[in-house]
Design a protein around this nucleic acid. Structure first.
Lengths: 143, 143
DNA sequence: CTACCTGCAAAACGTTTGCAAGACG
DNA sequence: CGTCTTGCAAACGTTTTGCAGGTAG
């Protein structure tokens, strides 16, 4: 898992941004998580490790600007997910209204449809699509 | 335009909610707008007409709960759009990062693809989709 | 009349920022 | 060593709430 950090360090260096203990902690937290996390959740997981909430927000913003991380807005709070190291550049999010967890829908067929949809919008030539969010909300039959 | 309010009044009455001057003003504002609005924008348009910002938020929340209005989250602020009176139950939003305006993409072909996508997810039977948000972000060649 | 609704101001919430101290390269 | 980064606390912008007065049905 840590070998992916080679790429990440290069991206930072290219932008004159220093790598720090805190940035690595946040990135590893996102890598290890099975679902998408809020800044507060990341902070709660890491606060015993000498890291402040403001740092979590600041580093996430840096990652978003570098396009390492994607910010997914919900009505009350923003979620974050790793963008690089993922083989799915475009995919659908599902947010369970019961357990409040957000994750990716991993289905090649569905994701292909999504990509086709994006292309169709782009081809209209009236728009230049820079980013997209598809979030489905509802219930997952979770424990 | 006002004839649509008959339906709306029935929905309110069914839920023991009173119709008020303020609720109608907000609803008409959403009906007349060509794009989706934030609570602050609605308030700015209406503040000369004896209405408070808190009321705008409160009424919008009531409308969202009654499924008259849809709340579309963005990173910094939520947008609102009318859900009933619209012939497009499912559609795509486009937010221009330049002019900060959000609106629907009106294209039957694209919207059909979107509906098919939703159905496909539903058919997987692991999820019960209650609501969905597709927002594309980028540039529109606006003046 | 009664319950629901409003405006206002204050509070709450997630997020950002200023600053002095600390750490990376 | 210089610059970028951090933690803390204070500030910010959006949204919510408590309350006394107002209004719909």
């Amino acid at each position: 898992m840590k070998e992916n950090l080679i790429w990440y360090k290069e991206i930072l260096a290219d932008h004159g941004i220093k790598n720090t203990r805190q940035k690595e902690l946040i990135l590893l937290e996102l890598m290890q998580s099975s679902c998408h996390l809020t800044a507060e959740e990341i902070y709660q997981h890491l606060k015993t490790k000498r890291i402040g909430l403001a740092t979590v927000y600041r580093c996430l913003k840096v990652f978003v600007n570098l396009e390492i991380v994607k910010e997914i807005p919900m009505v009350e709070v923003n979620y974050y997910e790793l963008k690089i190291f993922s083989k799915k550049p475009l995919h659908i999010h599902f947010k369970c209204s019961n357990c409040n967890v957000m994750f990716d829908i991993d289905d090649i067929d569905i994701n292909l449809d999504y990509i086709k949809l994006n292309e169709k919008v782009e081809k209209k030539r009236e728009f230049e699509v820079k980013d997209a969010n598809i979030t489905l909300m509802g219930l997952i039959f979770c424990s």
